[in-house]
């Protein structure tokens, strides 16, 4: 009778295997045939695209190069960047305010904030932009003053709402709704025990929000906001319909004159792509930093702004 281990050792297939000690052999995963086929197929597609980019003269790469750094285009790019920063700033601030209203203990306040989010998320931002541009048709004059007194100042809405104002107002208000949802999700991600601990110390709602909830929801909020920032950069192209001189509008102005539509749209795309890539690097850094620690909240360093960082004091 041979034991099981004996039979393994005398396995006829393995007897002929020469070479070094089996414990030292590396583990290898051979590539499957499918992978080679995939490489080939994808390379063919890539080559095809590259070929038409080079050989099709309608792309007019010389025109692209000529206008890439044209003054009008660069001015449009700056306008796009300024719009993005403005709308993100206003949107984030208003969004935070609405998120706070959405967790208010007062039901009517919660309902109102919820209605805001529903309206601005439920209608297309393009429609909203055109709406704000034409707001003067709805309210030709607004008066700012003290109710029930003679103290007031009439404002001509048509003059107040220029294309740029409408763009900033429209994009900010829309962004605020999305940002409010991001903040709300962040607040909800804070461990219930943290809120109970704060309650048990007798913390007021405001203190709890500022010192416990907001700092601890940063790991959820910051990466999502970074994504919104990149999204907003591209979203600003919508305001070209209002005639705001941002990147898309500025190339449209040029090709309206020269009829070189395709090369100028490529100019715009190159800039959008370049800026997006530029923004995605810090974004991926941020995501990495926050995701690494979220997985181990209890034993790992919590990547939340520390108390001293928040209070701006040196330890």
């Amino acid at each position: 009778m041979t034991s099981i281990s004996d039979s393994v050792r005398t396995d006829p297939d393995k007897e002929n295997l020469a070479g070094p000690d089996a414990t030292a052999k590396p583990r290898v995963h051979p590539r499957g045939a499918l992978e080679y086929v995939a490489w080939l197929a994808c390379a063919l597609v890539g080559l095809g695209v590259a070929r038409t980019l080079v050989t099709n003269e309608n792309y007019q790469w010389d025109v692209v190069a000529q206008y890439l750094t044209a003054e009008t285009v660069l001015r449009g790019l700056v306008m796009t960047i300024v719009l993005t920063i403005l709308c993100m700033t206003f949107g984030a601030l208003l969004g935070l305010f609405i998120a706070v209203l959405r967790v208010s203990p007062l039901r009517p306040v919660r309902i109102l904030a919820g209605a805001y989010v529903t309206f601005f998320r439920g209608t297309p931002v393009l429609v909203q932009l055109i709406f704000w541009f034409n707001i003067a048709a709805l309210y030709p004059n607004i008066a700012i003053g003290v109710p029930f007194t003679d103290v007031s100042q009439d404002i001509d809405v048509n003059r107040l709402i220029s294309a740029t104002t409408a763009a900033v107002v429209g994009l900010s208000l829309n962004q605020a709704a999305y940002q409010a949802e991001i903040f709300r999700g962040g607040f909800a991600s804070v461990d219930k025990g943290q809120i109970e601990a704060a309650d048990s110390l007798g913390m007021s709602r405001g203190t709890k929000l500022r010192r416990i909830i907001v700092p601890q929801s940063m790991p959820t909020i910051v990466p999502a906001t970074g994504n919104q920032f990149i999204g907003m950069f591209k979203e600003t192209s919508l305001v070209s319909v209002l005639g705001v001189g941002e990147l898309l509008m500025s190339v449209q102005l040029i090709y309206a004159r020269t009829y070189q539509t395709i090369p100028l749209l490529i100019v715009a795309c190159v800039w959008y792509l370049a800026m997006t890539l530029l923004l995605s690097y810090p974004q991926s850094m941020i995501e990495k930093k926050f995701s690494r620690t979220r997985a181990r909240v209890s034993n790992g360093p919590a990547v939340v702004p520390t108390q001293s960082e928040l209070m701006g004091e040196a330890k």
């Binding site: 461990d191 025990g193 943290q194 109970e196 601990a197 704060a198 048990s200 010192r211 416990i212 700092p215 601890q216 909240v297 919590a302 939340v304 702004p305 520390t306 108390q307 928040l310």
Partner: peptide, 12 residues
């Protein structure tokens, strides 16, 4: 109150 899961504030 002292909790089973401590509930210390991780940002402090």
């Amino acid at each position: 109150m002292v909790f089973q899961s401590f509930n210390l504030f991780p940002n402090m």
